[in-house]
Design a binder for these strands. Structure first.
Lengths: 127, 127
DNA sequence: TTTATTATACGAAACACTTCGTAATACGAA
DNA sequence: TTCGTATTACGAAGTGTTTCGTATAATAAA
């Protein structure tokens, strides 16, 4: 996987998510997945994926006529970087501010809270 | 406060944060605060704030020569909406996925972890 | 009053992102 | 081979954001 520091756009992230979920895919398949959610012409999707290839967000196998695209950035690293950027720009870098807002506004279930608390304890033991 | 559903841009959010922190402010003051962090010409800041006024993100008092701008959207509501959008686009709508990622990838310090754990315990006791 | 300073208004350029029309090409079917 | 379809390539238009130069107006200083 590439370790480029590029921040994908909204549209690119949608496509990356499809590639992460489905593995290497043709433009046709990605476009069909996208069209389950929104209207978008085939050539629009194609163009976006070509640009993603140029940017290094995706790579493609051009061996056969139908090019097969794969994500070239890892899901975890990408989301972690997006989260970091979001925390910095919206919550002045404070992860706890964000978590409080997230937990406060979405009424997490008791099971979710337990799960999260367990994770926190695990992390604290490591520090 | 206005309840318009407008999503501020990155630059607009920076300015809103200054207005939230400092209260009603002149363009000059906002520009000075911005310039502590980044280079940006005065007229650029002015233009952004004029646009924010047009969009309803800010209002201004034009009574005296130096116009005084105030945020016209609440900090909590705005951040909550931004968070919701971010969770939807990046974490498929799952707040706990986001929290896990925030806690798991060095996005939170030990102090923040303690803070969050305390919050969770408080929430659990309420249930 | 004259000059210098400070502020706003306006418009345009630069940039990035999204969208799609059209052309060229490869492939498969008749 | 010929025709229709699927695919990629290319370029340009539309939109939104950011940036700033210049003009105009108001105020303060001399």
């Amino acid at each position: 996987m590439s370790n480029k520091k590029l921040k994908p756009t909204e549209s690119e992230l949608e496509i990356l998510q499809i590639l992460w979920d489905n593995g290497p895919s043709s433009v046709r398949l990605v476009n069909e997945k996208l069209n389950e959610v929104k209207d978008q012409g085939y050539t629009t999707t194609l163009k976006l994926m070509q640009i993603m290839n140029e940017k290094g967000l995706a790579i493609r196998d051009t061996g056969s006529r139908t090019h097969i695209y794969s994500a070239n950035v890892s899901e975890d690293e990408t989301k972690s970087r997006l989260l970091r950027t979001f925390i910095d720009s919206t919550f002045k870098g404070s992860a706890s501010s964000l978590v409080m807002q997230a937990l406060g506004n979405h009424n997490a279930s008791k099971d979710e809270l337990d799960e999260i608390k367990a994770l926190i304890e695990k992390m604290e033991n490591k520090k």
